[in-house]
């Protein structure tokens, strides 16, 4: 990696100040995406702002009819949280299937969602549950937050602080892993609740997206059979050495069906 300055602020305000002062700064939380990129010299930040010293960004709590998860909460904490498991078991299930043990022990929800890797798990759950993203300056609806591959509504000096998940009636998640990277090849997060009926596809396309035909079908009849007949268009889906767009389009249907089965 290249040399960089290192900061470890103790508050969100200090972190924002540092971020605003240096356009080439990068935030780091779990580091599971950023550090490999640094080691490969694919990224050359002038400074790293380590958020791990900000206590306010940690923790899981139930607030009214929502679960609020701090940005620095690690995947393992979400996976094993009694609060999450009781309220949104599909979210705990999803977190327990991210990467491997090492990734879950380091990776954070805020890092994953801010990065918006199209093959990541969390964006599917955030959009699939119609969550609200809390930042250092505002609240953003998930529907407005994800803007395609590695792109979000976050501004240059804005820090994701927490994610607020409305508790659904039902939710389920299913994914097919890329055999090499074990990232998501195609996944589906479905839910029914205060945010309506949602079917969100991750992994298959250049970013997470809502599958509206499936949402309509499930709204009419919440049953695995309702999505099974709906064909996902392969146009615009990812295609690589691990699978064609057609294969991913097919998997979207299979995973949506499985997610509905998982949701019950």
């Amino acid at each position: 990696m290249y040399d960089f300055a290192y900061h470890k602020p103790a508050s969100v305000a200090d972190a924002v100040k540092l971020l605003a002062a240096d356009p080439d700064a990068k935030l780091v939380s779990g580091g599971h995406t950023l550090l490999p990129a640094l080691k490969h010299r694919l990224n050359k930040p002038s400074s790293l702002i380590d958020l791990s010293g900000i206590a306010d960004l940690k923790g899981i709590k139930k607030v009214g009819n929502s679960i609020v998860i701090g940005a620095l909460t690690r995947h393992v904490e979400v996976a094993t949280s009694d609060v999450v498991t009781a309220a949104i078991p599909a979210l705990a299930y999803m977190a327990s299937h991210i990467g491997d043990v090492q990734v879950r022990n380091r990776g954070t929800i805020g890092g994953s969602v801010s990065n918006n890797d199209p093959a990541a798990d969390y964006p599917g759950a955030v959009l699939g549950l119609g969550a609200t993203i809390h930042t250092s300056k505002r609240k953003i609806a998930a529907d407005d937050f994800f803007q395609g591959m590695f792109t979000t509504a976050l501004e240059a000096d804005e820090i994701l602080t927490a994610i607020e998940f409305p508790i659904p009636e039902k939710a389920g998640y299913a994914k097919m892993k890329n055999p090499a990277s074990r990232y998501v090849m195609a996944g589906a997060f479905v839910s029914k609740g205060p945010m309506g009926v949602r079917v969100v596809i991750n992994g298959a396309g250049p970013g997470v997206f809502r599958q509206s035909a499936m949402e309509t079908a499930l709204a009419a009849s919440w049953a695995p059979g309702a999505v099974a007949g709906i064909k996902q268009d392969a146009d615009g889906l990812n295609s690589d050495i691990h699978g064609s767009a057609e294969y991913r389009a097919h998997l979207v249907g299979v995973m949506a069906k499985r997610a509905v089965i998982a949701a019950g």
């Binding site: 055999p179 090499a180 990277s181 690589d240 050495i241």
Partner: peptide
């Protein structure tokens, strides 16, 4: 699982654990 893939231009596509199973 394992496939070493060069693209038609001769670049190694399966050049990391992310793509080589």
């Amino acid at each position: 699982l394992e496939a070493c893939v060069y693209d038609p231009q001769g670049q190694l596509v399966s050049g990391s654990m992310m793509d080589y199973t």
